[in-house]
């Protein structure tokens, strides 16, 4: 079974974010990056399926040069090779354009299964996987928590709200968006890290994808992104200040006498 895993590199979760002067993005210079959380789980899912059924796991990522770090981490965990679309010169918040690029790379591979994360921790669209499925003409299931491969099809358990699930069967090839927590994530071993050095990372340019400059031009999209800003607060907590002992005493006093919860 050949599995493509879409992984994005995003700023680490505790990052202190500062918006750029033009309000178009956050200042990237001081940020550290990591693999998007649900993409970690997508990779783990692919590796487990490969261990059980054989085949190949291919990482697909789009981003600037720094994403090589994420790719290496994935290869060290056991992925076989990687595809890297370097989008340094055409980064956009246009979901259709980003999906077009990823889809073009996937189309060159003839995979049995395409896995994406459920949602990115930076853009947070929660759309790319499902859009890719439609673009590629594949059936899909989203928010997947369990996968059982059968002959020519897969059975998956999808999460619904408040503890409900749907169990569905899809013909292969298919696309699944993976929810965090589907399984425990492995760490790379020393041996894995050594072996990763020999694995192929293929750089894909626009022309490699059969696309031209015009294909990544977001100026004709009907949806316009304007600016980023720190959310306006509608309500803010009463902040207790002082040293730890002090705030603890204040809190207990307030819970007793103001909130009257004891």
């Amino acid at each position: 079974m050949k599995i493509i895993v879409c992984m994005k590199q995003v700023p680490v979760q505790d990052s202190l974010l500062k918006i750029t002067d033009d309000s178009r993005w956050v200042q990237e210079a001081e940020l550290n990056y990591e693999i998007n959380e649900s993409d970690h789980y997508a990779l783990e899912t692919a590796l487990l399926l490969k261990e059980e059924h054989g085949g190949e796991v291919v990482i697909l990522t789009m981003g600037p040069r720094r994403v090589k770090e994420a790719i290496k981490q994935g290869l060290a965990k056991g992925a076989d090779r990687a595809l890297h679309i370097n989008n340094e010169s055409f980064t956009t918040l246009d979901i259709f354009i980003n999906a077009k690029l990823l889809a073009a790379a996937i189309q060159q591979e003839e995979a049995d299964l395409v896995l994406t994360g459920l949602q990115t921790d930076d853009y947070g669209f929660g759309q790319t996987g499902v859009i890719l499925a439609e673009k590629l003409g594949l059936p899909h299931a989203s928010i997947v928590m369990e996968i059982l491969k059968q002959d020519g099809s897969i059975k998956v358990k999808r999460e619904m709200e408040s503890g409900w699930f749907q169990s569905v069967e899809l013909p292969l090839p298919a696309l699944l968006t993976i929810q965090s927590g589907i399984s425990q994530i492995r760490y790379a071993t020393i041996k894995g890290i050594m072996m990763a050095k020999k694995k192929e990372i293929k750089e894909l340019s626009l022309s490699d994808l059969g696309l031209a400059e015009g294909d990544v031009d977001d100026s004709t999209s009907s949806l316009k992104f304007h600016k980023l800003y720190v959310p306006e607060k509608t309500k803010q907590a009463e902040l207790l200040e002082g040293d730890p002992k002090d705030v603890a005493a204040q809190l207990v006093h307030k819970l007793k006498n103001e909130a009257k919860v004891f």
Binding site: P11, Q13, L17, L223, H226, K227, P231, E232
Partner: peptide
């Protein structure tokens, strides 16, 4: 203007439609 959040609710982003 439609407002959605990025970075897990830490930052707001403004979008409009044209046409």
């Amino acid at each position: 203007v439609f407002v959605r959040q990025v970075f897990q609710g830490k930052i707001d982003a403004d979008f409009t439609f044209e046409g």
